[in-house]
C-alpha cells in the first residue's frame, strides 16, 4: 500500500477505545497528511428532559459495515483524504462512555474537517444502529427506543 491509497478501517465493537491509540494509528508512517481531525461521541446524561442512566446499542451485523464502507467511499469521492477510521460501540453503555469515533487525515485541514463531519452526518441517518435508553424517573426505571430526529436527516441532506 502506498501513501496515496485510502486506508479505511471500520470497527464495530463492545470494547472501549483509546483516542490516543487511534490518533497514533492514523499518524503512523503517514508523512503526507498534515491534518488529523477526530470526532468522539459520548453518552449524555439527559435526553428530551429525561434522566438517562444507560444506553443499549443494537445494530444489523453485515449491513452496518457495508453502509459505513459506502459512506467512507462517498467521502473519498468528494474530498482529498488520506486515512479514515470509524469505530462504533454496541451493547450496554453508561453515562460518559465513548460511543463513536471518526478519524480522518488529509494533506490540509479543510478536507479533513468536511469529510469527518460528512461521515458523522451520514452515519447518523444511514448506518443501521438503534439506541434504547434506560431512564430513571422518580425512582422508577423504564426503557425506551429513541426516535430518529428530523434534524439529523435535514443535516445529512445539506451535503447532497
Amino acid at each position: 500500500m502506498t501513501s496515496q491509497d485510502l486506508f479505511a478501517e471500520i470497527s464495530i465493537q463492545a470494547e472501549d477505545f483509546s483516542l490516543a491509540d487511534e490518533v497514533a494509528l492514523l499518524e503512523k508512517d503517514n508523512l503526507t497528511d498534515g491534518a488529523v481531525v477526530t470526532f468522539t461521541g459520548r453518552v449524555r446524561n439527559n435526553n428530551n428532559g429525561n434522566s438517562v442512566t444507560s444506553l443499549t446499542l443494537e445494530h444489523y451485523p453485515g449491513m452496518t459495515e457495508k453502509s459505513l464502507a459506502k459512506i467512507i467511499n462517498q467521502a473519498k469521492e468528494q474530498w482529498q483524504i488520506g486515512r479514515v477510521k470509524v469505530i462504533h460501540r454496541i451493547g450496554e453503555l453508561h453515562i460518559g462512555e465513548q460511543i463513536v469515533f471518526v478519524g480522518v487525515t488529509s494533506k490540509h485541514r479543510q478536507d479533513a474537517f468536511a469529510a469527518n463531519e460528512f461521515i458523522m452526518d451520514y452515519l447518523k441517518v444511514k448506518a443501521p444502529f438503534w439506541k434504547k435508553e434506560q431512564i430513571t424517573e422518580a425512582g422508577k426505571t423504564s426503557e425506551n427506543w429513541l426516535d430518529a430526529k428530523t434534524g439529523d436527516t435535514d443535516k445529512a441532506e445539506l451535503w447532497s
Binding site: Y60, M63, H88, I99, K126, P128, F129, W130, K131, D147
Partner: peptide
C-alpha cells in the same frame, strides 16, 4: 430482506 425503524446511532 430487513425491516427496521429509522436509525439512531452515533
Amino acid at each position: 430482506v430487513a425491516f427496521f425503524p429509522p436509525v439512531t446511532g452515533g
